[in-house]
């Protein structure tokens, strides 16, 4: 890739991150505080009110679930109005539109990685967990997750050009999606009763992230690889869809 283009993508990503978190008074602190508070709410609701069982490691279970789902929902939500947000550039100069997608997703991925770092610090401070070299499996899993979110983003941003209430509909889909993925409920249920759910890349990735980080076990390689391949395919199809259908982005938005 040409050097100035790479620099531009990095600059876009930095600006996007800055805009998202420095806008509020709490600043970057908000980026950590938000998932933290959500984890607390779910933890107390589920371990004291609903299940009435006190398993402290449930916090860690929730932590990985909420930050992973949070990454997906944040990325896709941001993507819907991406063309509109970048209109001020798009109408003045012909650029590769994929630059905007790569930089936006890089910025949300960065926030996710910082959350993951917090997870490791938190778990080491309070839980004395066992980690081993299996942790390197997180690399392909996170790449898969990134590609999946990127692919869906291509579709959403392009569809928004023609369907201006897509953001409302998507917020419902995200809300429903939250419950179809084992963010809160026990993922062993997936293996026992709903194995087909593992064909959803997010479920496959989330299950494997927990295998590695919570139980220090080998990931389920079959579904990990399948998830990565599906995600790569969705990213490619999304890219083609975006290139073919976004020619009129400037005049329609």
């Amino acid at each position: 890739m040409e050097k100035t283009r790479l620099e531009r993508i990095v600059l876009f990503a930095k600006t996007d991150y800055h805009l998202r978190y420095y806008g509020s008074k709490l600043g970057v602190l908000w980026a950590f505080l938000n998932p933290f508070l959500r984890i607390l709410v779910y933890y107390f609701t589920f371990s004291y009110l609903i299940f009435r069982q006190n398993d402290p490691t449930f916090v860690l279970y929730l932590f990985t679930g909420i930050i992973t789902w949070g990454f997906f929902s944040e990325t896709t939500n941001q993507s819907i109005k991406l063309f509109q947000k970048q209109r001020f550039i798009l109408e003045n100069i012909k650029l590769q539109k994929s630059d905007f997608f790569i930089s936006m997703t890089a910025s949300t991925m960065y926030a996710y990685l910082i959350n993951f770092l917090m997870y490791f610090i938190f778990s080491i401070l309070f839980f004395d967990p066992e980690y081993s070299l299996k942790i390197v499996f997180l690399v392909p899993i996170l790449i898969g997750l990134y590609l999946f979110a990127l692919g869906i983003s291509f579709f959403l941003a392009t569809l928004y050009i023609y369907l201006r209430d897509l953001d409302h509909i998507w917020s419902i889909i995200i809300m429903a999606g939250f419950w179809t993925v084992p963010v809160i409920w026990d993922y062993n249920l997936v293996y026992e009763n709903y194995k087909f759910m593992l064909y959803n890349p997010i479920t496959a990735f989330l299950v494997n992230i927990r295998q590695i980080t919570l139980y220090n076990e080998m990931p389920d390689l079959k579904f990990m690889i399948l998830g990565i391949l599906t995600s790569a395919l969705i990213a490619i199809l999304g890219y083609i869809f975006m290139i073919r259908n976004s020619r009129k982005a400037v005049e329609f938005l």
Binding site: T4, E7, R8, L11, T15, I89, N92, I93
Partner: peptide
């Protein structure tokens, strides 16, 4: 920030 973005979009190296 706007200067940086515009200059970058207009093809200036960082």
């Amino acid at each position: 920030q706007n200067i940086m973005i515009n200059a970058s979009v207009l093809g200036m190296p960082m």
